[in-house]
Nucleic acid binder design. Structure first.
Lengths: 190, 190
DNA sequence: TATAATACTTACTTACTAATAAGTAAAAAA
DNA sequence: TTTTTTACTTATTAGTAAGTAAGTATTATA
């Protein structure tokens, strides 16, 4: 008696998302996924014929997730600094999950990725950067945030701090990430 | 007629270093290396019995390289801002080689790395961060550089900008890295 | 000149990878 | 109630991975 297909497919996706962020695209296999679900290797192929299909779906779910976050932030009345903190918190949480951000993960494996996925990754990355830049620009206009660079550049600075900060935390510990987080929030306040 | 062993070993090391930075630890094989040198797979195993041995030697060469850079910078009379630029230039160069920095590479693959290597990676990372922090602290003491954070934190901020900037350049192009580079140099001047 | 070490090649093993074909039981649709 | 679809399992394939054992030239040493 097989479980509802959509459940299994969602679980595959969820496990694959975690593995991608934990060990990267080239270091997880269909077997890693199937073992966690107590199903066979071929069952994963039933839902995702190729690993490329699976990766594409993972990236697409992140695009959807970030679109939702974007519209959530756009309608939110949170102070701009708290919106930035939302991002910082998300990255801090990755450390506890022994993960890095997907963009960092796929960037590291970029030249081994299927071509079709690269375009979706580019879309995802610009979505995230654009969203952060918007938050920053609005915050500056409202007199809530202070920075000298153009908004895109400041978004690049902050997101690279966070993304590499999470990677670095694997090596030197979470304390370094917290120093980064504290510093970049402080910078925006003056 | 086999070539001088040390030559082959050095070439293996050099190719492996490049592959590590290009595709990561899990995405290159002994076959990738042997093909480039027109030797057999087993010849690589002769010089490096296991992939762990090879990775350990790679990390150790980077430790040596950075120790040399450290003493070079310590004795240099270059303005502090130019010393920072040395780092930025190194990272910019990685983009042209389709590479990312080793620390970023091994951080992404950290949980799939052999245990013995992790300690050397920690050493390497703290070496680099310490060196940058030293340059920054000296520069501030001399009135050449300006920043509000403690030197370690500012080193973290700059190195995460550079490391993730190089990764991001794979996705969105080198222009974003140049924005980052320009901004962080400008920040240090006022 | 004999011996030993060096730097390989040939040939192989074990283990895993993504992927597929064919079969099966349960559920849904006709 | 029959048929079809769904969601798998079983079994297999072709390819590649790291790693090894045994053999072979070449070079260095005694």
């Amino acid at each position: 008696m097989p479980a509802k297909s959509t459940d299994t497919k969602q679980e595959i996706l969820s496990i694959a998302r975690d593995l991608l962020k934990k060990v990267g695209y080239n270091a997880f296999s269909y077997s890693d996924i199937s073992k966690q679900l107590n199903i066979k290797n071929a069952a994963v192929h039933y839902h995702y014929p190729t690993k490329e299909d699976l990766l594409a779906d993972i990236v697409n779910t992140y695009i959807e997730d970030y679109k939702q976050l974007e519209s959530g932030l756009a309608h939110s009345t949170l102070p701009a600094i708290d919106k930035v903190s939302v991002f910082a918190d998300r990255y801090a949480h990755l450390i506890d999950l022994q993960s890095i951000c997907i963009i960092g993960s796929v960037a590291s494996d970029f030249y081994t990725l299927p071509e079709a996925v690269k375009d979706r990754v580019i879309l995802l990355t610009n979505l995230v950067l654009g969203m952060v830049a918007n938050v920053l620009e609005k915050g500056r206009t409202n007199g809530e945030l202070f920075f000298a660079e153009d908004a895109r550049t400041k978004a690049l600075l902050i997101m690279t701090n966070l993304a590499a900060g999470v990677q670095l935390a694997r090596i030197t510990g979470k304390k370094d990430f917290e120093s980064i987080r504290t510093a970049l929030i402080a910078q925006l306040k003056k």
